[in-house]
Every structure is written in structure tokens, then in C-alpha cells.
Amino acid sequence: MKRQLACLALAVSALSGGMSVPTFAAPFPVTPDMSVPVSQYVTQVNADKSITYRLFAPGAKRVSVITGSTPDNFVSHDMTKDDSGVWSWKSKSLTPNLYEYYFDVDGFRSVDTGSRFQKPQRQVNTSLILVPGSILDDRAVPHGDLLTVTYHSKELRSERRVYIWTPPGYNGKGEPLPVLYFYHGFGDTGLSAIDQGRLPQIMDNLLAEGKIKPMLVVVPDTETEITQAIPENYPPKERRKTFYPLNAKAANRELMHDIIPMVDGRFNVRKDADGRALAGLSQGGYQALVSGMNHLDSFGWLATFSGVTTATVPDAGVAAQLAKPQAINAQLRNFTVVVGEKDSVTGKDIAGLKAELEKQGITFDYKMYPGLNHEMDVWRPAYAEFVQKVFK
């Protein structure tokens, strides 16, 4: 009994802070052997343009790599483990492009912890790898500058930032340059257009080839994150009913009252409608449609790539403007509408918009990408094509 009481006293003393109690944690994860070259346990592109995916996970029981850009085209590949604890799988030779992938480690979705190239989403869960040989490469050409500009949004009452690409040698002197405003998609960030969309590389390379005019490209944050419109507060099924309309109105005010005045004031740019283009993808395509139609006299060029449209998210201003086809045809130098053939996210949206434009007799360029879904393999080439049309 005395021994039991003594043990109880020690326990009470420990709980009250009278003595320290040792804590037991799991051991730290094993790290790769320091004598092994890093190239032997990280993902890499091979000389034949295949990719060897690798992940160091000696304690895992099952690892697979999932390739593809949407759930509609995901493919899972079982990986094998060597004696050093490195799991690997080698792809076939691939077309030059930027590819997405992630690992399934015993049921846990993981980015490639051996790579710094992650898909810049609001919830990061995918990695990127570039197979060289396309317009997406960093080539030995004159490079523009990528600026990060932080500003105070009076409309949103918060500090915000935009990314701005300026052409090589731009110093603000000479003739004012036109501006393309480009909105990213839902769940992404401005860096999605930069790192995954590869806008700086596309612009550098097209300009070096003489295929585009010098311009500024401004990439705002499509999601306003205002208190009443934080996307996490809305279940996916409710987003088009609640979040999208609220967010679009807030982003529209920010564009017209904060972003464009800031760009006009800080840079030597054109301020006429023909000197401004507006485009976006997915949710950003909806934003471009809303702002472009509600402020038609402010833009001369408009594009939506796989955008949400008023077919599922009504907007009174857009509807009213679409009923004035002569005004749209007179104002817009180009109106581009793009979608992937198998787009299961916004395919119906774009089909509805296309039917409405045809019904009203509104002039527009339409392109469907065969066999593709709601993905960057639609949006990167669509952007490259559109940017070659504007300001000419």
C-alpha cells in the first residue's frame, strides 16, 4: 500500500509541475546516405526526355506516382523500392512540356519533397517538372523583368500584390505601352500564372521571335479574400451560387478602382481602351467576362479560357451588355473563347456562352482543343495564341 501511495504522490507531483516527466516521441526520419549523390534519389528528366520519378521513403510500404493534370486524366504508376529506400518509376519519352505529378505514400498525398518546383496553389499538393524543348523554356534571349508590386486596396481594405512582366529594357521612357491584365483560376495564386503558366518565358520567347508587340502583363490575385467571400467558407457545391458572384464584384471594383489606376500612375502605359486587354482562365475567365462586359468602354481585347460564364453564374451587367451586340462588335478588336473538348468543369459554361454569342450575332474567335480537359495544356497555348493577336 505504501508503495502504491508513493507512486500516486509522484504522479500528482508531476501533474502539478513538481517534477519533470520524460516524454517519448517517434524517432526522427532516416535521411539519405551522405555519400550518395543527390541525383540518385530525386526526380529528374533523362536525356531521352523520359522522367525518372524518385522518392526517398524507406519506411513506406507502398508508393505510387500519379501523373496527369486533372482527376479525369490521372494515372497511377506503382513504384519499386531499392535497397537504399528509394522508390522509383520511369516514364516513356515525353513531348516537351511542363508536367504535373504527386506521390501516394501509403494513402497519403504528397508533393515531391526532393523538388523545389511545386504547383503554386493555395493548398499545395502537386509538383511540377519541365521537359525542355518548347516555348516554355528559359532560352538565351533578352529577358523581361518580373516585378512584385504590393499596394493598398481601398476597395478591399487590405494589402494586396500583383505580378507585372515588363519587356526587356523597359525603363518607362518612350512610347506608352499597352497592358494585358490576366486572371488566374480558382484555388491558384498569381504565381500559378507565372510558375505554371510560364507567362514570363512565353512573353520573352514570343517577343524575341517578333511575334508579339512590347507590352506589360499584369497578374492580379483573382480571389479577393474579403471577409464575406473567403472560398473556404463555401462548400464546392455552393461556390457558383454564393462565392463566385460576391468575389467577382469585389475583384471588379479592385481592378477598376485600385489596380488599373495604380498601373496607370506608376508605369508609362496607354490609357485608351485599345491599349488594354483583359483575359483569364477558369474562375479568372469569369472575372474577365464580368469586368470586360461591365466596363466595355475600358478594354479593346477580351478572352476567356475555359471560363465560368453566366450560364451557371448569372451577372446582370453581363446579360445587359450581351443584349447589345452592335456595341460589343464595335468596341472589341478581338473576343476569344477557348475550351478543352472534354472539359468537365466549365464545358457547359463555354457551350452556353458560345450559343448566346452566336444567337446575338456577336463576333468572336472560338477554339476547342481536341481531347483535352480543364487544364494548362489548353490554357498555355491559348494564352500564347491570344497574346499574338492583341495590340496589332
Rank of each mutant, 00 (worst) to 15 (best):
F74H: 14
G107P: 04
I212M: 03
R333D: 12
I164Y: 00
F24K: 06
Q283H: 14
G68P: 09
S306A: 14
A288I: 08
L353E: 08
V141P: 12
V218Y: 01
R270N: 07
P314F: 11
Y101N: 06
V65C: 00
Q326W: 08
K324D: 13
L180R: 05
K92W: 03
R161W: 10
T363Q: 15
P214S: 12
K90E: 09
D274S: 15
T150I: 00
R116K: 10
V337I: 03
Q388P: 11
V337Q: 03
H152Q: 14
S158H: 10
K348Q: 15
T150P: 00
L278V: 00
R160A: 01
L10M: 15
F386P: 02
M376E: 03
P29D: 01
T150K: 14
K90N: 15
Y183H: 15
D365A: 13
I230Q: 14
Y99D: 00
R161G: 01
P37C: 03
I230S: 02
M19T: 13
E375S: 10
S153C: 09
L246S: 12
P58S: 06
R109M: 13
M376T: 11
K359C: 08
L128P: 01
D258P: 07
V38R: 15
V308K: 00
E375F: 02
G361L: 05
V387R: 04
L332P: 03
V162Y: 11
T189R: 13
V269H: 05
Q201V: 08
G169H: 04
V141L: 11
Q360H: 10
G85E: 11
D106L: 13
F108S: 13
R157F: 11
V75E: 15
Y102M: 06
D343I: 04
G144R: 05
D72R: 12
V378N: 07
T310P: 01
G361I: 13
